[in-house]
Simulated scan of single mutants.
Amino acid sequence: MNAAGKRPLPDLSVILCVMDRIDEPGELLAIYRRALAPIGNNIEFIYILAETHPRVDDITALSKSGVRVIHMPKLCGEISMLREAIAASTSDLVMTLPPYLQVEPGVLAGLAHDLEGADMVAASRIRAKDSLFNRARASAYRSATRLTGTRFDDLGCRVRLFRRSVLDRVVLRDEHAGYLPIFAEHAGCRVKQVKVPQAELDRRPRSYNLPIYFDGLLDAVSISFLIRFLQKPFRLFGTIGAALFASGFALACVLIIERVMGQSIAERPALLLSVLLLVLGIQVAAVGLIAEVILFTRLPASSIYRVRRIIEHVSEVQPENTPVHAGHEI
């Protein structure tokens, strides 16, 4: 108790979003608590899950050991659950952990030191001892995510530590929860990637349904568009439209030359194709131009950069041993 008779605010809020896969809740909680003990005793754990989850009773029972459990009426996306859990948390620092072991627990406390000078720390598993199938699957997923231009190697790892203000700057849909570090960096946050050893239990071969892999590829393509062209859509649509228009114009020029030389072009499919390419090129470019107008007139003016430090000039008349310039972090 502090002087006001209230419990002190926690130094860290640990959030576990329970979707489907889950280890034994009681044992996992004990492992996480031991691993985070070096940070301090004032740590709150928050579980959030749907009331329809088959292990809801087991997780709810953890509330007797000081864990806060949040029930959702139905299963929703991970980002929605994360936002609700952060709204219920009381610490400025948030750590997200999966309800199963992904990394060796002994490295979790060290992530707090890695956060110095950054807004987010994203863990990346060292898969040297992982099964061959898991490594092949991870390599394919990493190659797909390279479409976004990311430098992060393991977006499937849910071990992350960040300041709660990060999520306020990010516009993210539920199915894109794994891409949180990319969107945070795009929003001007400083994100560190830290290599950590993979947990032994996480090395077991796992496979998913084929549609899940296909959805992952589509997500990578959509994220690539959002990251690269969200604020400048005309560059994408204008380039495609110009290429279509140029192709149609070149084909039309060839047909005109042939017509001047006396050949009939009235019944040739090439004539219809050239007209189609010209019209389609104009339409695609117009879509990009309309998107630019909408972004310019509707979206609020917000920068994707953040001010890190302000250097202020102090008056020339200074007491002795006073620095001429001073700065502070933001």
Rank of each mutant, 00 (worst) to 15 (best):
E292Q: 13
A246C: 13
G66C: 06
N42K: 11
E44S: 15
R83H: 07
A50W: 09
L172I: 13
L271D: 11
D11K: 14
S63G: 12
A35K: 10
P10C: 09
S80K: 07
L299D: 13
L93E: 03
L299F: 10
L172F: 09
P197V: 04
A144H: 02
L82S: 00
R33L: 08
L16N: 05
H71N: 11
P54D: 07
F229N: 06
E104M: 04
G26P: 01
A87C: 04
A285N: 06
V221Q: 10
G149Q: 02
L75T: 12
P54V: 05
N209M: 03
L62V: 09
L111I: 04
R160V: 03
L289D: 07
R127L: 12
V159F: 02
E292A: 13
S143G: 02
N321G: 03
L62C: 02
A109P: 06
S89Q: 01
I48P: 04
R160D: 05
L251K: 09
R228P: 00
M95R: 01
L289V: 06
R190Q: 09
A30K: 15
S131E: 06
A122H: 14
I39Y: 10
C157K: 07
S89V: 01
Q231C: 05
G288Y: 06
C189Y: 15
K232C: 12
E51Q: 13
E116Y: 03
A266Q: 14
I48V: 14
S91N: 08
Y213H: 10
D23M: 11
F152A: 00
S264D: 15
V284H: 11
V69P: 05
A35M: 04
V107K: 08
R308G: 13
I79T: 11
R308E: 14
E116S: 14
L28Q: 07
A291F: 14
A122N: 04
A138P: 00
P99M: 03
L62S: 03
L16E: 08
E200V: 09
P54G: 01
S303N: 07
F234L: 05
E116R: 13
P197E: 03
I212K: 08
D202V: 01
P99R: 02
G110Q: 10
V279S: 07
E104N: 07
D174Q: 02
R158G: 00
P99V: 07
D23P: 06
Y213E: 05
K6A: 11
A30R: 15
R163I: 01
E116L: 12
L29P: 10
A177K: 00
L180T: 01
S13M: 05
